[in-house]
Design a protein around this nucleic acid. Structure first.
Length: 566
RNA sequence: GCGCCCGUAGCUCAGAGGAUAGAGCGACGGUUUCCUAAACCGUAGGCCGCAGGUUCGACUCCUGCCGGGCGUACCA
């Protein structure tokens, strides 16, 4: 597609004397397919050419009209030039690109040789994995795969919340009310129960908070007894999180969390101090960013204990040292926006030129009934529960629709997870979303299962036909609107993939994927693929195979399993 | 108080300077002797929060206001 646009821009440049790049940037897709495949608005060009917009459009249309492939026709409509493409030429270019790539992904790898460090998910251990955490997890995992598709080496970091006063609370609660059996049978559930109970009891008995702080101090001092409990809670939590990640198809390269950095905090603070950025204020150690209108960043509390900001400084310095990244992406909720602005500004002021390679990819909250979820109040929806319900529902539907199918359990799990994962990716990340069972458990319309269904249908057609055509195929036979519509969608992928990475916005890829699937469904609903005419059958099979490959590649980028049957 | 984000069809969301603002869900109607009906086609449904401004042109950019969310030094 991109080459065809370039070819057209070159012709117009030759005819008008305008720069090619300017024309390329202006060429767009018209709002209605009936107008044409491409359009060029001439408002801005008119001034440069000292003519009225409709005149320019008429001149351009005339220049293109008889110019031959890839232009099949051009006409002026007011200030616009509407261009129809040679469908055979477009099909040959697009299907050629798809079959030239084993993975189904675009072949260009602009990220080759670069490293992207991506921090995401980052659950607090001893707290359950909720649907609120899913949002950042699905986002970060998709961004990781998207960067890999562009050639980046990606380091996935799960920055565990495994240090802090809350462990003093959990340890204290466990000693008072804990049960060994329950810890074994349902570790996180039990730890959560203890944490919630601690919160309630501390309300009427503030001495508990004091006790928990003391326990955390012992932990920071490395007291063996406390450390042993902490280790146990941590490893139980990690095991449980890894089960969730396995269901979602995610693997991390590093689980180094806040605890890992606890001994590097002082070096981080000293680094900033050496640059003259550190002040004492109200007994605490801070970086004053009032001049930058970013308030103050608290580094060390008045008792010299570390806090998240100082741990993040240490982590950033360490990651730069270890990975020499060209991008460091923090996939963290929008409620921490100020914190990251402060962090990046401090690094920048400290002379770290790599600070500009750091980016906070923020996302809106997941609310429940319009309110923020609260672990302490026990008002949460557990991800495991959502995945179970979704898989169960999928199993029921499969039993109805396709009872003979082998591997029904695997398909049900894939469809259930697909529905849940896709729902958390389609909405642009800056919006808050309200969790709704009926939405996340929907398999109809713009959903993950719809995409998986489309892929399964395409596979089914290829299975019946005995595979994709082997020899040369006459793609000029793909002349109908529906076939052409599919080809145009296929041709958009490389642009969309690059935009998704640039904006750290998998939703762009997700909604394009829906467009592609929609075009494919319209196509095979309207036209039978396997028919009497061998040449036409071969051409349509080639199209089906190309869509199948691209769809599969995108589904996997988004974290969905591309089923061959469902 | 100040800062950031959001406000588009009954609901969930696209569109982010350009042509008549689009999907899905829900509602109503249609399509299966045919490669999977988790699909496809059609109908109904809109003062794009409100008011100004910039522009040849504003849902889109600027200002103000209203409504919701989040943040604003010892939680992360």
């Amino acid at each position: 597609m991109d080459q065809l646009i370039l070819a057209i821009a070159q012709r117009l440049a030759a005819a008008s004397g305008l720069p090619v790049a300017e024309l390329v940037a202006l060429i767009e897709v018209p709002p209605d397919e009936k107008m044409g495949d491409l359009a060029l608005p001439c408002f801005r060009l008119a001034g440069k050419l000292k003519k009225k917009p409709p005149e320019v459009a008429a001149d351009f249309a005339a220049a293109l009209a008889g110019s031959g492939s890839p232009v099949a026709g051009a006409s002026a409509a007011g200030a616009y030039v509407n261009i129809r493409l040679d469908r055979a030429a477009l099909a040959a270019a697009v299907l050629g690109e798809v079959s030239g790539s084993a993975s189904g992904l675009p072949v260009s790898k602009p990220g080759a040789g670069q490293t992207a460090v991506i921090e995401f998910s980052s659950p607090n251990i001893a707290k359950p994995f909720t649907v609120a955490l899913l949002r950042g997890t699905a986002l970060g995992a998709a961004l990781s795969r998207i960067h890999e598709a562009l050639g980046f080496k990606v380091v996935r970091c799960d920055y565990f919340g495994d240090w802090g006063t809350q462990f003093g609370k959990v340890i204290t609660a466990f000693r008072k009310w804990g049960s060994e059996e329950k810890l074994k049978s349902e570790p996180i559930g039990h730890l959560l129960e203890l944490y919630v109970r601690f919160g309630e009891e501390a309300k009427v008995n503030p001495a508990l908070d004091e006790e928990a702080r003391a326990v955390f101090r012992k932990l920071e001092d490395g007291s063996a007894e406390e450390m042993a409990l902490w280790e146990r809670f941590r490893s139980l939590s990690v095991a449980e999180f890894e089960r969730v990640y396995a269901r979602l198809g995610i693997k991390f390269d590093s689980y180094d969390g806040e605890a890992y950095y606890r001994n590097k905090v002082q070096a981080g603070v000293d680094f900033l101090r050496a640059k003259g950025l550190v002040e004492q204020s109200q007994g605490a150690t801070i970086v004053n960013l009032e001049k930058q209108k970013l308030g103050v960043m608290l580094l060390l509390k008045s008792d010299d204990a570390s806090i998240y900001a100082s741990r993040d400084v240490a982590a950033a310095l360490d990651r730069q040292e270890r990975f020499r990244f060209s991008k460091l992406i923090y996939v963290v909720g929008a409620d921490q926006k100020l914190h990251f602005q402060q962090l990046f500004k401090s690094l920048e002021l400290a002379g770290c030129e790599w600070a500009k390679a750091c980016r906070h990819v923020d996302f809106g909250l997941v609310l429940i009934g319009g309110e923020k979820m609260s672990t302490r109040a026990g008002k949460v929806v557990l991800l495991g529960e959502v995945l179970d319900k979704a898989a169960e529902l999928a199993a029921k539907i499969i039993a109805e629709k396709n009872p003979e199918m082998p591997n029904k359990e695997r398909a049900a799990e894939a469809v259930g997870v697909g529905a849940v994962a896709f729902t958390s990716l389609v909405t642009r990340r800056n919006k808050d979303v309200d969790f709704a069972w009926e939405r996340i458990l929907s398999f109809d319309g713009e959903t993950g299962p719809y995409l998986q269904y489309t892929h399964a249908r395409l596979c089914s057609i290829l299975r019946k036909a005995g595979g994709a055509p082997a020899g040369a195929v006459d793609l000029g036979l793909l002349a109908t609107d529906e076939e052409h519509g599919v080809v145009k969608q296929l041709g958009r992928m490389s642009r969309i993939l690059a935009d998704s990475a640039e904006n750290c916005e998998p939703a762009l890829l997700a909604s394009w994927c829906l467009d592609l699937a929609g075009a494919a469904n319209r196509f095979y609903n309207q036209h039978r693929v396997i028919g009497e005419d061998a040449a036409l059958t071969a051409a349509r099979l080639a199209l089906v195979d190309a869509v199948r490959r691209r769809l599969r590649a995108v589904l996997e980028l988004l974290g969905l399993v591309a089923l061959e049957e469902m």
